[in-house]
Design a protein around this nucleic acid. Structure first.
Lengths: 139, 139
DNA sequence: ATCAAAATCATACTTTCGGGTGATTCTCTA
DNA sequence: TAGAGAATCACCCGAAAGTATGATTTTGAT
């Protein structure tokens, strides 16, 4: 990162220096103004591309961070509690285990699940997990 | 992609045109040569970065290719048929649906599943799917 | 040809899920 | 403060899932 910026700065400085040194007015007389601008433009487009590649490579190779699709959650009108249940289902817990974790009765868990199935338009918990993951509702 | 290149081309053409139109020699007299080069360079570095971002975003979002962990499958002694069942379970199918797809009885499917649960050391289909995915047995 | 593993199926039984219905309490907002 | 939505719980019933045990058939390797 720092290295990339440094190299970029050096390249920039070098170009300016060279132009100055060789009296760039001389070049201008030799080539058309369009060509001159073109060369500068292409050079620095290349540099920009290169810098961009360096920068993105360093941020993208890392872990692909999970970002929850909150829009979808809102759109599907899935409540906080329902989402909690969904996450636990995705971990493979049984209704009973989920109920114990959340300190509610099994019936409550079942109700939440029923609502989830409706909203996700599925029939089974496995399908719910699949859909929820594909919609990025859960990790 | 095409759009990106098009916009880049247009920006380039526009700049050249403007410089020509306003007799850019006039500018040069007003500002130092370093400054002139600087502005061009910065402009096209920015363009390069932008183009780079567009391009990488389109190539990087692609799919990270799935490669099955065959070693683990062999180590766990999971048979072909069992793996098939596992994949269908992961798609959210019921035992009945799986049985129909594989042209076997529900009992057979259940037997395969029992064996899978043993080998994966889990109790439920949801956990089996979770574990199988984390072990890269299935996609 | 024999042996072992895998695949198939069955029967019986228990547990878990899921659907349907209805009720109560809480909380937030118009 | 009235009303809507969320969370809680209960009861019932049928369907699906999972367990246990045992049996037969296929298949591949020795």
């Amino acid at each position: 990162m720092k290295k990339t910026v440094l190299i970029y700065g050096l390249a920039l400085a070098l170009l300016v220096f060279l132009l100055e040194y060789f009296e760039y007015r001389f070049f201008i007389r030799e080539m058309s103004s369009e060509l001159f601008v073109f060369i500068i433009a292409l050079t620095f487009t290349g540099l920009g591309l290169w810098v961009g590649k360096k920068l993105t490579n360093q941020t993208k190779i890392e872990s692909p961070p999970f970002e929850q699709n909150e829009k979808a959650i809102r759109y599907l009108k899935i409540s906080e509690r329902e989402l909690e249940v969904l996450e636990l289902v995705a971990e493979g817990l049984s209704n009973k285990q989920i109920s114990e974790k959340l300190f509610v009765s099994v019936n409550t868990t079942k109700t939440h699940l029923s609502h989830l199935y409706e909203k996700l338009e599925v029939k089974r918990r496995t399908q719910a997990v699949e859909k929820a993951k594909s919609l990025k509702l859960i990790e």
